[in-house]
């Protein structure tokens, strides 16, 4: 995973709440066995509409997505994160995220920036008034800045450190392999296995 420290870019405004993962990447895109190439499927059922947020000329090249409440609800498909990243987004801003989406995003280095609904609204209005507005997502300071708007966002220390270092979660866990092995020794005999004939 690439390290994430500070990202500066323009924002696109998606004025919708409850943007579920089926909308972000519809299921026919989930048949692929690769991790790349999902950008073309991003919001694919909405993309035919020339008025759709991402089709508007001012959204071209945006790397930060501003969305309504409960972004990324629904399925566990990490393909939603891959699609947003493949399209060019580095961060998504919303008042609230679906839990699994948020966790997937943090694994892959797409930053979910949670801000109060009023702050998101204020940010949307600024970007709508001036689509060229530079938005800064500063992970070190856990702060989003856009013109005169400055707002902190929550993220735990550990995740921030992992993102800023670009560390692989599995590698981190395997440092504690001894603990896993010790735990396995103590597991109860009545616990199931999936082995055939068990």
């Amino acid at each position: 995973m690439d390290a994430f420290t500070t990202h500066t870019g323009r924002a696109a405004v998606l004025r919708r709440s409850d943007v579920d993962t089926d909308q972000i990447i519809p299921s026919d895109w989930l048949k692929r066995v690769e991790r790349t190439g999902f950008g073309a499927g991003l919001f694919s059922e909405w993309r035919d509409d020339p008025d759709f947020a991402l089709n508007r000329p001012e959204s071209a090249g945006a790397s930060i997505l501003l969305a309504g409440k409960d972004f990324g609800t629904g399925s566990s498909r990490e393909h939603a994160v891959w699609a947003l990243q493949d399209y060019g987004f580095r961060a998504v801003v919303s008042p609230r995220f679906g839990d699994i989406f948020r966790s997937n995003a943090l694994k892959g280095g797409l930053l979910p920036v949670q801000l109060d609904a009023e702050v998101v609204e204020a940010l949307m209005q600024r970007v709508e008034a001036d689509p060229s507005l530079e938005v800064v997502v500063d992970l070190g300071a856990r702060e989003l800045r856009a013109g005169d708007l400055v707002s902190p966002f929550p993220l735990d220390d550990f995740t921030r450190w992992r993102l800023m270092e670009g560390l692989d979660d599995i590698g981190l866990t395997l440092r504690n392999e001894g603990d896993i092995a010790a735990f396995e020794v103590g597991r109860s005999a009545h616990l199931p296995t999936t082995t055939l004939g068990a």
């Binding site: 990490e78 393909h79 997937n104």
Partner: peptide
């Protein structure tokens, strides 16, 4: 439910942070 990165994590370590 977990995402694909976590699927890989569980396959490799049988545990999750």
């Amino acid at each position: 439910g977990i995402g694909t990165s976590e699927v890989e994590h569980v396959l490799a370590t049988q545990s999750l942070p």
